[in-house]
Design a protein around this nucleic acid. Structure first.
Lengths: 340, 340
DNA sequence: AATTTAAATGACAACGTTACCAATCTACAT
DNA sequence: ATGTAGATTGGTAACGTTGTCATTTAAATT
């Protein structure tokens, strides 16, 4: 025992170690591990036995480098605070996981500069594809993505030209429909409440479309209040109070989202304003909370989980070479409930 | 122009292309790209110019393979539907992004088998570290992670032995405190409402600790109702109705989370039950919604965003070789508001 | 049995980086 | 001038896998 220090801290167990142990070639191990065709049962058994014994874990870095493709999918969303995105993410992951893909998450915080950075970082991993939110990306992001030979899906809205494919709904149409139905119901003095400085752009589009249609119908928006803070029930209540203080004759408020709308509802409750007689309230998104209120919230139900699912499955289809339409309209549903 | 088909679909721009264009060696490009020390201004300029012109994007797969380390961090959570995890994720990402790391997301759906699979898949990417939720992992997962030479942080609760480091709060203590304070307030007939089959385990621990302390204080739990469905405001309302129907004398209900508790509150509102006189309501998590109710929700405020932040920053510290305590108690706050 | 065809395995060379070590080139002290 | 430390650059060989093509072996055909 003179040749000391035998084991120099053997790092990772590689395909070579397994091959040696199983008495086969490296490539055979590789084939067994990725379930390639034409493998004899005997080989498979030998290899898996050796692999299990050694506790071998394939190194995807090496594999991906060689195949020039990975099972990572870049998923880039603006925020995690808005309940919409977790739901969408859930939908995405449900499809990806089932097909052996992995979501790599990027959060932009509604910052264009950061979005560019995140996209760059993601592309460095040679993702199989990219899913991002909205169609209002910076020109540099569009350009960068355009150059890649991978599928790119933009989700949430379909109101602008997509880079490749857009999956979502028309926020313009949703706003039009809200305006039309509320006017038809007899409301005449409309208000609008938004937050977070109207990020993302699609919320602004929604408001503009709402205003446009209202004017068209002969009863233009009376007043609007866009708070800088992020949306929340509390902000919704505060904003409602402020808006009504300045414009007591408003009979219907369209909110940028359900959180704000619920806040408005609570405000009415605490002030003894009857809903919808004293004030009609219309939210946006159709989240669970709104349907649990003593009086159910009238809102536009958006297909969030489905949007995620569809985005991912369309991405997969693109990846598999299928021809895919550039616009996928998943629609929405105006739920006329108790508050308007 | 006879030598046709010049460009054979030149794939990715590599470091070699940049080197050729800039008239320098590959390695120099590499060094400039990762801001290595001792680079002359001239070299840097030549390289960046060439890189920009060619639109070069580094290939992290190759880099990570060579350095045997990546900037990916595996983040494994059980669910996205529960608002707790998006918030935690937000906290994690805020720290990771700032330090040049990337979150790779895995969702287990509270399935042990799936968790194992997800952990395996993640480890194949040689992540810098792993962050997961809870301390109730399957033995195989613990074993697998124990073998890795990377930092592992378990977040959410600190009531069991961590693999390496646990960051969170004691759900046992929180339950104890709720029991003590409510008994001190004079409530005597306690009920408990949970959902989702008491996943994750820490919610069960919370209930058991609550029951234990109540017994100790001489007023054992009257009744409990654990719904199978996922938590929601609606389920909370239904469960409250059911529990009260069977046990009309209950004067205080502790809910597994705020969604359920808000449901309970709505139920009371619609039934004309005064809160907290007719029924005291205690939630868990301290989410925004509860504080926006006409009467604020009494709840245990958990440090969700902070938990994410701390988890990530502790992971970073471990990665940088610092010694880190195995248990990090971030505490909680029992917010005594209007409903109890 | 001879021949063809397919199935099963192996050898070698990449994939695009970076670690490691060697070489060159400054600037400054002798 | 001459040497020398330090700054700057380059060459070579991996990292661990898989694509491509060659080879062997078994099964199928005549």
């Amino acid at each position: 025992m003179n040749d000391i220090t035998a084991k120099p801290a053997q790092d990772r167990v590689t395909i070579k170690d397994v091959a040696k142990k199983a008495g086969v070639s490296d490539i055979s191990v590789s084939r067994v591990m990725r379930n390639a065709p034409n493998i004899s049962a005997k080989l498979r058994e030998k290899v898996t036995a050796a692999a299990d014994e050694l506790g071998y874990t394939p190194n995807r870095l090496a594999g991906a480098l060689k195949t020039r493709s990975s099972n990572l999918v870049a998923v880039i969303v603006p925020s995690m605070s808005n309940a919409v995105f977790p739901e969408v993410l859930d939908g995405i992951d449900s499809v990806l996981a089932e097909n052996g893909f992995q979501a790599a998450l990027g959060i932009t915080h509604y910052d264009k500069e950061r979005e560019l950075q995140v996209v760059r970082d993601m592309l460095a991993w040679s993702p199989m594809g990219v899913i991002l939110a909205g169609t209002d990306q910076d020109e540099r992001v569009r350009h960068l993505l355009l150059k890649q030979a991978i599928p790119v899906v933009q989700m949430m809205d379909i109101d602008s030209d997509p880079i490749q494919v857009a999956v979502g709904m028309s926020h313009r149409d949703a706003a039009y429909e809200v305006a039309e139905r509320m006017v038809a119901k007899g409301y005449k003095k409309f208000g609008y409440i938004g937050a977070w400085g109207e990020r993302p752009d699609r919320s602004k589009l929604r408001r503009l479309s709402f205003e446009e249609k209202l004017s068209e119908l002969g009863c233009p928006l009376i007043a609007r209040l866009i708070r800088d803070e992020n949306s929340s029930v509390q902000i919704g209540a505060q904003a409602t109070q402020a808006l009504l203080a300045e414009n007591p004759d408003i009979d219907c408020i369209f909110y940028a989202n359900d959180d704000l709308a619920v806040g408005g509802y609570f405000h009415c409750m605490s002030q003894g304003i009857s809903v919808p007689e004293g004030l009609a309230i219309v939210g946006f998104n159709g989240i669970d909370l709104g349907q649990a209120l003593p009086s159910k919230l009238t809102s536009v139900k958006t297909p969030r989980f489905t949007m995620g699912k569809e985005s991912a499955s369309i991405l997969l289809r693109c990846h598999n070479g299928a021809e895919v339409a550039p616009i996928h309209d998943l629609g929405f549903e105006l739920m006329l409930e108790g508050t308007a």
